[in-house]
Amino acid sequence: MLRGRLFLMESETDPYSLRALLQWQIDCGADEAILDAPVDRYALEAKPPPPVPAMPGAAEAVPESPVSAAGPDPVAEARLMADAAQDLPALAAAIAAFPHCELQKGARSMVFADGQAEARLMIVGEAPGREEDRIGRPFVGQAGQLLDRMLAAIGMARDAARPEDAVYITNVLPWRPPGNRTPEPAEIAMMLPFLERHVALAKPDILVLMGNTPCQAILGRTGITRIRGQWTEALGIPVLPMFHPAYLLRQPLAKREAWADLLALKSRLMTGAST
């Protein structure tokens, strides 16, 4: 921060330098200006009031026993809340009310899903990025635009009228991790019951897992360069791991493998998911 301030003082009349400094800060993850000094907002949560001293001669109060020495189980609570949701709007409301994922405290939006819920194809990504967090829809940034072009190449779209041509899209995490970092195992575990219920309610014929994080969540495996293109089964339906579009933007040569996976996906949809 000191280096940035000195640079600003030296070039405060140079708009090109100011823009370069702003872009550098955005690349570092500082994409929102709030105050001049950082504030730990987690430390600003309301604290319980101090205990009231007992009056002389009063009987000593017996403290209540805690429900559990380790506190509430986020995964078990997520499972109960997810199983209680009977439709997709109820599931979205349950996720919004889930109190144990700290990511929602720093996110602008809860990114639930996009596309046609009746679609035969459901795509699961990792987590919202900056644009997704701003708009509230999954895959709307550069990676999302590439995904739309990939789907269009095989005659599919998230806004297609026919279920056989439509796509339904969600993520493992509904909130953006700070700085677009990789989701932590504890975050994946507590949100997995909601994702599994999401798939059960949407009832797709085929599930595409884009990137390592959804493969870790659904399949318990990582190493997308090894497992991509290999059909498997999870949650009772066929599953195809594929490269995430963000990876393809960084590694354009991998688009050849992605095209092969798209053709295999299209063939599976045309011949029937059960074959």
Rank of each mutant, 00 (worst) to 15 (best):
I169L: 15
Q116V: 13
V208Q: 07
L146V: 04
L147N: 06
D148V: 09
I206K: 05
A152P: 08
N171H: 08
A202R: 15
A157Q: 14
L151N: 07
A143S: 15
L192S: 11
A127M: 09
A97H: 10
L146Y: 06
V140R: 00
G106M: 05
H198Y: 13
I123N: 02
T170L: 03
R158H: 13
L207E: 01
R158M: 10
E131Y: 11
M150R: 12
A117F: 03
P193R: 06
G136H: 06
V124H: 00
L173K: 09
E187K: 09
A117S: 14
A96V: 10
R197P: 12
P183K: 06
P183I: 07
G141K: 08
M190T: 14
C101D: 15
M210A: 15
F194W: 11
R181M: 06
Q104G: 00
D159A: 11
T182F: 03
A153F: 01
A152H: 12
E187M: 07
P193C: 12
D114S: 15
M156A: 13
F194R: 12
I188P: 08
E131K: 12
I95S: 01
A107F: 04
A157T: 11
P177W: 08
D133E: 09
M190K: 12
M191D: 01
G155N: 13
M210W: 02
Q142V: 09
M110S: 10
G106Y: 00
P128V: 03
L209I: 09
L209W: 08
E131A: 12
A200R: 14
A157G: 15
K105E: 13
N180T: 12
D205C: 06
S109Q: 14
L146N: 03
Q142M: 06
R137W: 01
V199T: 08
M156R: 15
E131P: 00
A161W: 02
P174I: 02
L207F: 01
P178Y: 02
T182C: 04
T182G: 00
P128H: 03
V167T: 14
A143T: 14
I188D: 04
L201G: 07
A189F: 08
I123E: 02
R120Y: 03
A161C: 01
R149T: 12
W175S: 03
A189K: 13
F98P: 14
D205M: 04
G179D: 00
R120F: 06
M122I: 03
L103V: 09
G136T: 10
L146Q: 10
A113C: 14
I206V: 15
A143N: 10
M190I: 12
P185M: 01
E118S: 14
P99V: 12
I154Q: 09
L192N: 07
G141E: 03
V111T: 12
N171V: 07
D114Q: 14
E184W: 03
I154R: 03
A186Y: 11
T170Q: 03
V208Y: 01
R137V: 05
G125K: 07
I188A: 01
I135D: 00
A93F: 02
A107W: 07
E187A: 11
P183Q: 09
L121V: 10
R149F: 02
G179Y: 00
